[in-house]
C-alpha cells in the first residue's frame, strides 16, 4: 500500500475521526509517560537539570524523518504528497519568539498542557484557558496582524532547498547533530545540581 493512505483514497475519509482518536491516544500516552505533564520537568531543559524534552523531541523528529525517507525510497509512500506548512518568514519567526516567551512563563506547550489537564494539573488547565483566550484575541485583532501574517510567503519550501543542500545530506547531518546534542545534554546534566520537583 502506498501511503499516505487517506489522500491516496486507500482508506475512506469516514475513518478519519476514528484514526485521529487512536493516533491522538498514542500521542497523549507517550507524552504523559515521558513526563510531559509536569511543567517543571519540561522546564528542566532550559535550566539544564532535566533534558527530557530535548531527548524526546529530537528522537521523535529523527525517527519520523528517517521513516518517511526510507518509505519514500522504497516506494511505500509518496513523500511529495505530505502537507508542508507554508513558510511565511516574518510571521513564523515572530510567532516562534512569542511562543518561546509563553513557554518560559507557562511551562507548557499546547500538546503537553492537554496531558496535564488529563491528569488533573490546575496549572495546565489555566494554560489551556489562556490558550483559548490568546487565539480569541489574535482572531479579534486579526486586521491588525494581517499584514505580518500574510507577508513574505515562500510557499511550502523545505529547509534543505532553502540552504541549497541535498535532502539526504541534510537528514544525515541532522541525525549526527541530534546524537551530539544527546551527549552534550548528558554532560551538562551531570554538572548542574539536581532540582527536586
Amino acid at each position: 500500500m502506498t501511503g499516505p493512505l487517506i489522500p491516496m483514497e486507500i482508506i475512506p475519509e469516514a475513518w478519519n475521526n476514528v484514526i485521529a482518536l487512536l493516533l491522538g491516544m498514542g500521542f497523549g500516552f507517550v507524552l504523559e509517560a515521558s513526563g510531559f505533564s509536569s511543567s517543571r520537568k519540561i522546564m528542566g531543559t532550559f535550566f539544564g537539570y532535566d533534558f527530557v524534552v530535548l531527548r524526546v523531541f529530537f528522537t521523535a523528529a529523527i525517527t519520523a524523518m528517517s521513516g518517511i525517507i526510507y518509505f519514500d525510497f522504497m516506494g511505500w509512500m509518496d513523500a511529495s504528497m505530505l502537507y508542508i506548512n507554508p513558510y511565511y518568514v516574518t510571521s513564523a519567526i515572530a510567532g516562534g519568539v512569542i511562543m518561546g516567551f509563553g513557554f518560559a512563563l507557562g511551562g507548557f506547550c499546547p500538546g503537553t498542557s492537554f496531558c496535564g489537564v488529563a491528569i488533573g494539573k490546575f496549572d495546565a488547565m489555566f494554560f489551556s484557558a489562556g490558550l483559548f483566550l490568546g487565539i480569541l484575541l489574535f482572531s479579534e485583532m486579526y486586521p491588525l496582524f494581517a499584514g505580518i501574517y500574510n507577508s513574505e510567503n515562500l510557499g511550502d519550501i523545505k529547509i534543505y532547498e532553502m540552504l541549497g543542500m541535498k535532502r539526504n545530506l541534510f537528514a544525515f547531518l541532522l541525525i549526527v547533530a541530534a546524537v551530539g546534542m544527546f551527549y552534550g545534554a548528558a554532560f551538562v546534566e551531570k554538572k548542574v545540581t539536581k532540582v527536586e520537583y
Binding site: 510567532g95 507548557f108 490568546g134
Partner: peptide
C-alpha cells in the same frame, strides 16, 4: 503563558 502561546501559534 498560555495566552502568549495562543497568539504565537
Amino acid at each position: 503563558g498560555g495566552m502568549l502561546f495562543g497568539i504565537g501559534s
